Amino acid sequence: MTGSPTSSDAARPVDEARIAELVDAALAAIAAAGTTAELKQARVAHAGDKSPLALANRAIGSMPPDQRKAVGRVVGQARGRVNQGLAARQAELEAAELEATLLAERADVTLPVELHPVGAMHPITALIDDMCDVFVAMGWEVAEGPEVEAEWLNFDALNFTPDHPARFLSDTLFVEPVDHHKLLRTQTSPVQMRAMLSRELPVYVVSPGKVYRADEYDATHLPVFHQLEGLAVDKGITMGHLKGTLDHLARSMFGDVRTRLRPHYFPFTEPSAEMDLECFVCHGESVGNPDRPCRTCRSEGWIEWGGCGVVNPRVLRAAGIDTSVYSGFAFGMGVDRTVMFRNNAPDLRDFVEGDVRFPRSLQGGAR
């Protein structure tokens, strides 16, 4: 180390000139230290217990009393200058080393990098959000209800007769004991009844959620799936309002697509209809054309989307609504099948297997 003291330094007489030499040597060694490790060596050599200044401080005790005060002041000031130099150089070196470390370890945060596996919103959740957004934009309310439902709300209030096939154990999952009349809801329609019973008229609600059926688990059926149903009850509601609402929803989900209504029967609506979408793959060109078959619509040109109709007056009366003043419409469609339509997903089981690769593969098309 440059400027390091030698063992002969301690043998020299202690005087102000000698103390000044020791201070200069210490400050030179401190200034020459290029790293904190070198500075540590300079600290030990010039400010440690065996350094010349420390030995000079201990030698004060053996001096005549009349010299101790003057020499003690000189030595104390000298040691203070050395300690101040050490502290200042320590701060400089630590700052320089930190800057060098940060420079060496810096990362370009603008580079694309995937540190952890990235998940994806489930396509069913994404589509439910999109469909609800369409209705919220029209001023409708999103309503939810329990999945374990009373049999009266799920069937009786919706005009299902006691012998209706949907109420059989082969179709409906009842919660034991059966005589408590509790079941896993087979549709989200009970939420509509709850809305009519709890809200002031007019009512405009859309209700998404899980529903349960005693169905087989295969490529086209699930015992647990998702529906989105809507209900509007107001003065002067007609089938035309229903058609316009569903056309707007279809265009929001599928773009410029044609729709049609086919007569059908549901206990809770009268008149009732099934809504079909023009096949957005073949646009009807596969009908009667064996050279261009369409797997999506099975060459029929149309895809069944959901049921709808004008609310049956019996359902309104069950909710205590005056049918001479108010009328309404209701509709419902399967969200899972809608995702299949939009993304050509071949197997419903992929929706529930939990493989993150599936929602990732549909991430671009599900929203």
Rank of each mutant, 00 (worst) to 15 (best):
L93I: 10
T323P: 03
R292G: 05
C308M: 14
A219K: 01
G301D: 01
V335I: 12
L27W: 10
R367N: 05
S361V: 04
G288R: 12
D276A: 08
A166E: 04
T188H: 05
L39I: 06
G364M: 08
F268M: 02
A33P: 13
P65I: 05
S8L: 14
I321F: 15
G230S: 01
P162M: 01
L183V: 13
E270A: 11
K243E: 11
H116P: 00
L103M: 14
T110L: 12
V205W: 03
N159R: 07
T172H: 03
L316W: 11
D247L: 14
E97K: 07
A120T: 06
G139D: 09
R58M: 13
R199K: 13
T323Q: 05
W305G: 02
T245C: 13
P267W: 07
A137C: 11
E200G: 09
S252H: 10
W140P: 10
N343K: 02
P359C: 10
G236E: 08
T269Q: 04
F358Y: 12
P346C: 07
R298N: 11
D347W: 04
H283W: 09
F155W: 00
V109K: 08
V211Y: 02
V74A: 15
R167S: 05
D156M: 04
L111W: 01
G364I: 05
Y204K: 13
L53W: 09
V281S: 06
P202E: 08
R295Y: 11
A25C: 11
V14E: 07
S170K: 10
D336R: 01
M333W: 03
